[in-house]
């Protein structure tokens, strides 16, 4: 019943983000006043470029809002890799996961940060946010899979790591199973996700049962769930996620005419185009 997991932890303090980067903070960031939403706008699967604030139609709780800010490919990313390193991810699967991660790390911009949260039943961040991708690569090389799966706990930790410094937060969760050992309850972590700006993409192998939590997490944060036939396909999936995330707009608006707290359903459309949009379905206000 009891498994063993042991891997080298190359953790750095989460709060210690790169100071130089903080000085280059983007022009806006979510606060209690400004709501920030990541939006993917596509036509026939191709991203729509060149949109400005006036091109977006946003309703918050059914009330039309004025989009103040739009950013496209301008903000640095906080990419958090939350990887299941339980017993079932050993041998060839780990090799595939490591190779796929390298491919993602190679595509990061110099201003992007990346972190690793590895988990079995043990949530053991392999490295806090850093611009040094080699730290993540080394942590993965040192990983020894084993034990059970604390998927919900780890996803929560990843959300917090992602918002621990300025930037757009992308959380990529890979798991090949369902949660068996978490302390935190899935619905409570989903509530936190509704309060953050993070976008969660999940990746799972098609042949295994996929956690409903991951599907819900992707939906609620405006991300997407990827299914791969085999761990050999992880590289393509991770690269696809990163590319898609980069092609998303970040829009900001100051809510007007809506209640201060509670759940705020959001609808984001592109004016005058038959574009499809993907964005979080709403946000929880109050509580930060």
């Amino acid at each position: 019943m009891t498994g063993r997991a042991s891997f080298v932890c190359l953790a750095v303090a989460l709060a210690a983000g790169a100071p130089a980067r903080a000085q280059d903070a983007p022009t806006f960031r979510s606060s209690t006043e400004v709501v920030r939403v990541d939006v993917l706008a596509t036509v026939d699967g191709r991203p729509v470029r060149g949109l400005g604030p006036g091109d977006f139609e946003v309703t918050d709780s059914g009330v039309a809002q004025v989009v103040d800010l739009v950013s496209f490919e301008q903000l640095p990313l906080n990419v958090v890799l939350a990887f299941d390193l339980s017993e079932s991810v050993s041998g060839e699967r780990l090799a595939h996961l490591t190779a796929a991660s390298r491919a993602v790390l190679a595509r990061l911009e110099r201003s992007d940060q990346v972190a690793l949260v590895s988990f079995s039943h043990v949530v053991a961040p392999g490295a806090g946010l850093t611009t040094d991708a080699s730290t993540i690569a080394r942590a993965l090389e040192d990983a020894v899979p084993g034990g059970e799966t604390s998927l919900v706990d780890a996803t929560y930790a990843a959300l917090l790591v992602g918002e621990s410094d300025v930037g757009r937060s992308l959380v990529i969760v890979f798991s090949d199973g369902v949660d068996t050992a978490s302390w935190l309850q899935a619905e409570r972590v989903l509530d936190i996700a509704k309060r953050t700006d993070a976008v969660v993409y999940s990746v799972a192998v098609r042949s295994v049962a996929v956690s409903p939590f991951l599907r819900e997490m992707a939906e609620q944060t405006g991300g997407r769930q990827f299914r791969v036939d085999s761990t050999r396909d992880l590289g393509a999936a991770f690269e696809g996620i990163l590319d898609e995330f980069r092609r998303r707009y970040v829009i900001g608006f100051t809510p007007r005419g809506v209640p201060a707290g509670g759940w705020h359903p959001l609808v984001v459309r592109i004016k005058g185009q038959r574009a499809t949009t993907r964005a979080r379905p709403g946000y929880l206000a109050g509580g930060g």
């Binding site: 009891t2 498994g3 063993r4 997991a5 042991s6 891997f7 080298v8 932890c9 953790a11 303090a13 989460l14 709060a15 079995s120 039943h121 043990v122 949530v123 053991a124 961040p125 806090g128 084993g146 034990g147 706990d153 929560y156 930790a157 917090l160 790591v161 918002e163 621990s164 302390w183 935190l184 409570r188 972590v189 509530d191 936190i192 309060r195 109050g286 509580g287 930060g288």
Partner: peptide, 30 residues
């Protein structure tokens, strides 16, 4: 994790992050 979640749900990001940082400092071996 409970402390972190409690703080985050109340909007106290710093306390939430501090509790997660304590998790990070725990030994990684089960």
């Amino acid at each position: 994790l409970g402390l972190s979640h409690l703080a985050r749900a109340r909007g106290d990001r710093a306390a939430a992050l501090e509790a997660i940082a304590r998790v990070m400092r725990l030994p990684s071996r089960r």
